[in-house]
Write a protein that binds this DNA or RNA. Structure first.
Length: 271
DNA sequence: ATGATTTCCTGTAGGC
DNA sequence: TGCCTACAGGAAATCA
């Protein structure tokens, strides 16, 4: 599932492969997947890609004609740079034809939890999903994160998944970060001291950095623009390791459901 | 306001 | 071998 490191991996690949290229044609193949700006489809044409921005898990492709293309990969979304003559795979919801038409960006998303959108760049800050997005883990201060968790009695795990509290974390990296920080996923957030939050944030940044360096996690087959798989799934210490031995202490990793999400942790290392 | 639950959707894994 | 069911989850919506 694409979370911050996977989206960042795609953003960097887009920066290398599509910056300064011209949008020849924007072809939505499934109208209801284009969540916002369907009436602007024709105005995108001719714009050149001049910046690639990520906010949380949202990707913004800025064009030099004032328009911005939004991409959220949801659960099963993939953004691929394909050759024109490659067959269009099932569940492809948009084709963005580039330059002379030899190549095109395609977004596939079988489960359709993701979306795409077209918006004026100057309207972006007012677009609710963008506006609601919390500060990036690499920018947020321990004080801000602490304030966002202030007085919350719910378990820390589901709160870290809320994009308004901290932007970009998903199930994998929350579990991995809590393990590294030695914090039990069910710990009420309000019990965590500023010291705990500092340690947690340090581990969040560490795990995200390591994953970005590995090209993301390719559980459920995440791949970047050219089909390359990430390798961070090999480094997962708790996620998807239910019943296996903790790499720190040897205890069996457990998996419980919290807020409807599977939550993996070591009962001995995490308090 | 907070928090718990339901909804969307399809591919895959597991059981029999 | 093949069918069927359960499950995976990001985030918005709904309800208590």
């Amino acid at each position: 599932m694409p979370e911050l490191p996977e989206v960042e991996t795609v953003r960097r690949a887009l920066e290398k492969r599509t910056l300064h290229r011209r949008v020849k044609e924007y072809v939505p193949l499934r109208p209801d997947y284009l969540r916002i700006g369907i009436e602007h489809v024709k105005q995108v044409k001719g714009g050149r890609i001049n910046a690639l921005q990520r906010k949380g898990k949202i990707l913004a492709v800025h064009l030099d004609n004032g328009w911005t293309l939004l991409h959220h990969l949801g659960m099963s979304g993939r953004l691929l740079l394909a050759n024109r003559n490659e067959p269009v795979e099932l569940h492809t919801h948009v084709r963005i034809v580039l330059d002379n038409g030899a190549e095109e960006l395609r977004q596939r998303d079988p489960r359709r939890f993701g979306y795409i959108g077209i918006i004026l760049q100057k309207e972006l800050e007012k677009y609710p999903p963008w506006a609601r997005m919390g500060t990036d883990p690499f920018e947020i201060t321990p004080g801000e994160l602490c304030a966002n968790l202030q007085g919350r009695k719910r378990p820390i795990k589901p709160l870290l998944l809320e994009q308004s509290i901290i932007g970009g974390l998903g199930n994998i990296y929350v579990d991995e970060s809590l393990f590294r920080a030695g914090i039990h996923p069910t710990r009420p957030a309000c019990e965590l001291s500023l010291h705990d939050i500092k340690r947690l944030l340090r581990h969040i940044r560490q795990v995200l950095s390591e994953s970005i360096a590995a090209g993301g996690s390719s559980t459920s087959d995440f791949q970047t623009l050219d089909g390359t798989l990430g390798e961070f799934q090999m480094k997962h210490r708790v996620y998807g390791r239910e019943g296996k031995e903790c790499k720190k202490c040897g205890e069996a990793i457990e998996c419980i459901t919290l807020g409807g999400r599977s939550s993996h942790f070591c009962p001995a290392c995490q308090k």
